[in-house]
Write a protein that binds this DNA or RNA. Structure first.
Length: 492
RNA sequence: GGCGCAUUCGUCUAGCGGCCUAGGACGCGUCCCUCUCAAGGACGAGAUCACGGGUUCGAAUCCCGUAUGCGCUACCA
C-alpha cells in the first residue's frame, strides 16, 4: 500500500451534483481509502453570484448515497477547518497582501468595461486575449489617485514574463507551459473574495493536501497554481488530472445531454452499488476482463497508474445491464425495501396506499431478473395491483387460435380452476397441462390466453407463479371478464 | 488565433517492443433452454490500433509531423 494521502473534493455549490463531479469525488475517496488516508470535503463557495441555496445539501446527499463518506468537512469537523471557503476569507486576503508586499502581485483598477473593450480589440486584431498589464507598473501617485476615486481594485498575480513552468502529472505525465502564454490573472476579486486559483492554493496548503485530483480541464491552469506555490514558498501537491465524461457529441457532459445529476440516477432507479461500479470503470480498470466488483474490491485494487487518459462517453445501456446484474444479486428482502418507495410513487393513483409489503415481497422473485432499474418495477408489476385490467379482446386470441378456441380455453380453465382445492404452482401446472390436452391445443396456446386474461400482457413472469401470487379469486374473476370480453366481441 | 491535452471494435476498455492474424464487456445477430418475457449457455458479425513519416531484426506500443476532437485563454469554478 502507498503512503496515506490527504485528498479533498472541492465542489462549488452551484447546482445539483453533476455525475462527473461525483466521479472525481469517487477517485478521491478511492485513493484515500486505498492508502488509509483522509478524504476531505471542502465547499468552494467563493462565487457569490452563482451560489445556489441547498446545493451543499444536494452534494452531501449524493456523496452519502454513493457511500463516499468524508473524514473532514461539513458535518464532520476536523483540524483544518472551517471547510467553507466563505469562512476563510481572511486567509486569502492575507496571502494576497503578502504577495503584493513582496512584489509578486499588484492591485488592478481596470473597470470591467475597459477589460471588455480590450478583449474585443485583441480579438479583432487576432491577438491572443489576456490582460494587457496596464496596472502592473502603476506609480504610487497613480495608485493613490485611483484609490481616491473610490475604485475597489482586484489583485492580480504578477506572472513571470519569460521562462517555463513544468510539472509532473501522475496520469498525464510531464507538462510544460511557456510563462509568456499566461496573463496576469485575478487572485482576489474586488468584493474581497478569492478566485479559485488563489483559494485552492491557499487551502490545499493549509489543509496539507498531498494529491490534487481534479478533471483534465484544469491542466491548463495548473501552471498558475504552481507559480503561486512558488511565490508563497509552499511545497506544491502532487497533481492528478483525470479525463472527463463526455456526451454523445464528445463534448464535456452537460445538462443538454440529458440526465447529468447523480440524484437523477437515483430517481431513475439505479442502485448505488451499480453506479459506483460503473463510474469506477469509466477511466479506471482492474485488468482486461474484470467488470463486476464490490466496493471493497475496487478499494483494494485501485491505483492511479491504471487510470486512462481519454474522455469516456456515458454509456447508459451498459449501466442498465450492470444495474440488472446488481438487482439480480439482491435478496428478496432487500429488493422489497428498495422497490417499495418506487412503487408507492409510480403505481396508478387508484391503487390503495400504503402498499402491502408482504404482497410486494411475494412479487419480487417474479420480477427480479426482469427489471433493469427499480423504477421498472411499477410498469412490470402494475397488474398485480390494479383492479381493472385494460386490454383489447383481440389480445386473447393468440397464434393459431380463434375466438372459439380461446373462449373454450378460458371456460375450461375457469371450470378447472374453480374446482381446485388449493392454488399452488404444481397443482396449477398439472391441471392446466391436462386441460390443454383435453382441449386439443398446445400448452403454450392455453397458457398465453390465460396470461393475457390474468395480466393484460403478453409478456409476464412465469404464468403459474404469477397466478399463485394473484390468488385464486382474482384469477377467476379476471378469467370471467375475459370470457365476457370475447363473448361480446364475437357478437353471437 | 495562441497554448495545452487526447486519438485501439458503435460504446467502455485490455495492451506499457516480439505472447496481437489485437483480448474482455455492453449493445447487436443466430442458436440452445423455455408457457410468454427475461435470466442463463453457445456461437458470430464488428478495430487495416486517426493518418503520414521515421527508429528497430521486429511497433497498437518509442520519436517527429499532419488531421480531428476536447479544454483553457472570466473580478466562474
Amino acid at each position: 500500500m502507498d503512503k496515506p494521502v490527504r485528498v479533498r473534493f472541492a465542489p462549488s455549490p452551484t447546482g445539483r451534483p453533476h455525475v462527473g463531479n461525483i466521479r472525481t469525488a469517487m477517485f478521491d475517496w478511492l485513493l484515500a481509502r486505498h492508502t488509509g488516508g483522509t478524504f476531505i470535503l471542502r465547499i468552494e463557495d467563493t462565487d457569490v453570484e452563482r451560489r445556489v441555496e441547498g446545493a451543499v445539501e444536494y452534494m452531501m446527499d449524493a456523496l452519502n448515497w454513493l457511500g463516499l463518506d468524508w473524514d473532514e468537512g461539513p458535518g464532520k469537523g476536523g483540524d483544518y477547518g472551517p471547510y467553507y471557503q466563505s469562512q476563510r476569507l481572511e486567509l486569502y486576503q492575507d496571502a494576497a497582501a503578502k504577495l503584493v508586499a513582496q512584489g509578486d502581485a499588484y492591485y488592478c483598477y481596470c473597470s470591467p468595461e475597459r477589460l471588455d473593450a480590450m478583449r474585443k480589440e485583441q480579438e479583432a486584431r487576432k491577438q491572443s486575449p489576456g490582460y494587457d498589464r496596464l496596472c502592473r507598473n502603476l506609480s504610487p501617485q497613480e495608485r493613490a489617485a485611483k484609490e481616491a476615486a473610490g475604485i475597489k481594485p482586484v489583485v492580480r498575480f504578477k506572472v513571470p514574463l519569460e521562462g517555463q513552468t513544468k510539472f509532473h502529472d501522475i496520469i498525464y505525465g510531464d507538462i510544460t507551459c511557456e510563462n509568456s502564454n499566461i496573463d496576469d490573472f485575478v487572485m482576489l476579486k474586488s468584493d474581497g473574495y478569492p478566485t479559485y486559483h488563489l483559494a485552492n492554493v491557499v487551502d490545499d496548503y493549509a489543509m496539507k493536501i498531498s494529491h490534487v485530483i481534479r478533471d483534465e480541464g484544469w491542466i491548463s491552469s495548473a501552471p498558475r497554481h504552481l507559480m503561486m506555490y512558488k511565490a508563497l514558498n509552499y511545497e506544491p501537491p502532487q497533481y492528478v488530472h483525470h479525463p472527463v465524461i463526455v456526451g454523445s457529441d464528445r463534448a464535456k457532459l452537460s445538462k443538454r445531454h440529458g440526465a447529468t445529476s447523480l440524484l437523477d440516477f437515483r430517481n431513475m432507479g439505479y442502485l448505488p452499488e451499480a453506479m459506483f461500479n460503473f463510474l469506477a470503470l469509466m477511466g479506471w480498470s482492474l485488468d482486461d476482463k474484470t467488470e463486476i466488483m464490490t466496493r471493497q474490491q475496487v478499494v483494494e485494487n485501485f491505483s492511479l497508474e491504471r487510470m486512462g487518459k481519454t474522455g469516456a462517453f456515458f454509456n447508459i445501456e451498459k449501466l442498465d445491464w450492470m444495474n440488472g446484474v446488481y438487482i439480480r444479486g439482491l435478496t428478496v428482502e432487500d429488493l422489497t425495501n428498495r422497490v417499495l418507495p418506487f412503487l408507492e410513487k409510480d403505481l396508478p393513483p387508484e391503487v390503495k396506499r400504503p402498499l402491502d409489503i408482504n404482497y410486494i415481497r411475494q412479487i419480487m422473485p417474479l420480477i427480479r431478473e426482469r427489471i433493469k432499474t427499480l423504477k421498472d418495477a411499477a410498469t412490470y408489476a402494475d397488474f398485480f395491483f390494479v383492479d381493472k385490467l385494460e386490454y383489447e379482446a383481440s389480445m386473447l386470441i393468440g397464434k393459431k387460435m380463434t375466438t372459439e378456441t380461446a373462449l373454450a380455453a378460458l371456460k375450461g380453465a375457469e371450470e378447472k380452476l374453480s374446482s381446485l382445492e388449493s392454488f399452488d404452482h404444481d397443482l396449477l401446472e398439472d391441471s392446466l397441462r391436462h386441460l390443454a390436452d383435453d382441449l386439443g391445443i398446445k400448452t403454450g396456446q392455453l397458457f398465453n390466453v390465460l396470461r393475457v386474461a390474468c395480466t393484460a400482457r403478453d409478456a409476464t413472469p412465469p404464468l403459474f407463479e404469477t397466478m399463485v401470487v394473484l390468488g385464486k379469486e382474482r384469477c377467476l374473476k379476471r378469467i370471467k371478464i375475459a370470457i365476457s370480453k370475447l363473448g361480446n366481441n364475437s357478437n353471437l
